[in-house]
Write a protein that binds this DNA or RNA. Structure first.
Lengths: 159, 159
DNA sequence: ATAAAGTGGTTGCGTATGCAACTAAACTTA
DNA sequence: TAAGTTTAGTTGCATACGCAACCACTTTAT
């Protein structure tokens, strides 16, 4: 067991546990911020609404790619959000396999109140961090993403 | 909708989307690495095994605290791992409410093969990043964690 | 044109996760 | 010591996620 223990301490020096811990805290913080402001949205739902506000009517496979989700996951996420009337599917006329996804009025309304909350969350959690350090961190995260991205499953185009 | 769109672009300048994207990629990479090496472990299970290898026989609430998990989540994680015979519960004799969790022989074996895989994953995803930038990033993540940690639910002690 | 290959979406299955409600046990306090 | 409070763990409920299998529709190749 000695060997195992040795490697265990190696891990602690890497970015891995920090990334995990930080994401956990951040996720909790976001969930909490939404709840405190009576915004009935999960992080995943917010991300999706935001993408649709940027570009509406995307096909599900495009949304899956953009949001780094499995298409199965996206199917269910959209279904949940359709139940909540935040988005709705519209079958494509040119390609019968495709669904286009549109944000609803209600979706826009919720996004409108959710957006400043997220902006506030961001300024909170980045407090006391210099712009240079933020840039360095973004650069590092980008590099990690590239290192890890060797021919992934998400080979689809963004459109 | 103009206002909404404006804030949307603000978000992109922050660390938030980068953290999300990077974690997603990393999680996929780890899952894949385990699968390629025929290691039947999830990330959560690995983390737990590792904690137990560092200190065996912890109570569930301590493990929950250490691993940043809800105690309910931990209950189920342990149950899954008990089914896989990676760990086992042992009721405390001094406090009948408490379960101590121990890693099994099988758990140690799997951890032993899983560890070098994770070490390799780490060196892969950190490739091309200078030690200084890694330190800066850790510092930033630590700061975020602190910013976000205002009197959390995990107020228990680590033991 | 027809068979083969590829694509978009859904569903079954297993896993993980948080919150709230609950039970049993321990601790505090009047 | 009895009542009230806190703590450890479990369970119901809801969300999210990936993989694999599958169906229907398209596109490609022969």
């Amino acid at each position: 067991m000695q060997n195992v223990i040795k490697n265990i301490n190696e891990i602690e020096k890497s970015l891995l546990p920090w990334l995990g811990r930080t994401m956990k805290g951040l996720d909790f913080y976001i969930t909490d911020a939404f709840k405190r402001n009576n915004i009935n949205l999960t992080k995943a739902q917010f991300i999706l609404l935001r993408r649709l506000a940027i570009k509406d009517g995307l096909a599900q496979h495009n949304l899956a790619f953009i949001t780094d989700r499995d298409k199965a996951s996206l199917t269910r996420l959209i279904s949940t959000m359709e139940r909540k009337e935040l988005v709705h599917r519209k079958p494509s006329r040119s390609d019968k396999r495709v669904n286009h996804v549109f944000i609803t009025e209600k979706g826009i309304d919720i996004l409108r109140v959710g957006m400043p909350v997220i902006i506030e969350v961001i300024s909170q959690f980045q407090q006391g961090i210099s712009p240079e350090d933020i840039q360095t961190t973004i650069k590092v995260l980008e590099q990690i993403r590239n290192n890890v991205n060797t021919e992934q499953h998400w080979t689809t185009e963004t459109t």
